[in-house]
């Protein structure tokens, strides 16, 4: 079976929502079991007392990336069919900075706040409520942001194209950087005083 299965027509579309639910369960379980339902555990990454976010995030990214590379190489999946988010330069950077601000105040990101809601964290419920308000505000004020939102479209650009690098070289460097960061994180964690949460 050559993936991606649904775009290739291997799995009928009617299964879409069932698959979504199952993958969501896996997503939610791995987030919660790793401790992403606790905002203070998440924030540990920024203060150096708990690097769980850094570890889980980068391990997940390089695992999935490695899987895609090998499946594509073996011909089990066509990586060029995968959806790539379009890169609107200014919009992505400004959006990222706003999200970073929200992260520092709220201590969650959308996915993790939903797992927090699932186990009864009231702060996560407020955060999730805020998400809806935020999306609503953005949509209502969209005419103001429209220019910025649509400027500098580079399409589904890949990072290695912009850097003028081969994809395999970038992937290898990313893995090396990730492992280096894991090592650094363990080193910093030893130095920083533990915070009870």
């Amino acid at each position: 079976m050559v993936g991606p299965l649904i775009p290739m027509g291997v799995i009928p579309e009617t299964w879409n929502n069932v698959i979504a639910l199952l993958l969501g369960v896996g997503f939610g379980f791995s987030l919660e079991a790793s401790g992403f339902s606790s905002s203070r555990k998440i924030m540990g990454t920024f203060f150096g007392y708990d690097f769980v976010v850094l570890r889980v995030f980068f391990t997940a990214a390089i695992t999935a990336m490695t899987g895609i590379f090998y499946f594509d190489y073996m011909g089990w999946m066509d990586a060029s069919m995968l959806y790539i988010n379009p890169y609107y330069v200014m919009s992505a950077i400004i959006g990222g900075i706003i999200m970073g601000f929200g992260f520092a105040l709220g201590g969650f990101c959308p996915g993790t706040s939903f797992t927090g809601v699932a186990i009864g964290k009231i702060d996560a419920m407020f955060f999730s409520g805020g998400l809806f308000i935020g999306v609503f505000i953005f949509s209502e004020l969209y005419p103001l942001f429209q220019g910025l939102y649509n400027s500098h479209n580079l399409g589904g650009a890949k990072i290695y194209e912009l850097l003028g690098m081969r994809d395999t070289v970038f992937a290898f460097l990313l893995i090396v950087v990730a492992v280096g960061m894991f090592y650094g994180a363990a080193f910093v964690e030893k130095k920083v005083t533990k915070v009870e949460y």
Binding site: I98, M99, L105, G106, P110, G130, V135, Y149
Partner: peptide, 12 residues
């Protein structure tokens, strides 16, 4: 934080 994240996620 939720409101900001909501706005930012639409930009990005």
């Amino acid at each position: 934080g939720g409101i900001l994240f909501g706005v930012g996620s639409q930009f990005a």
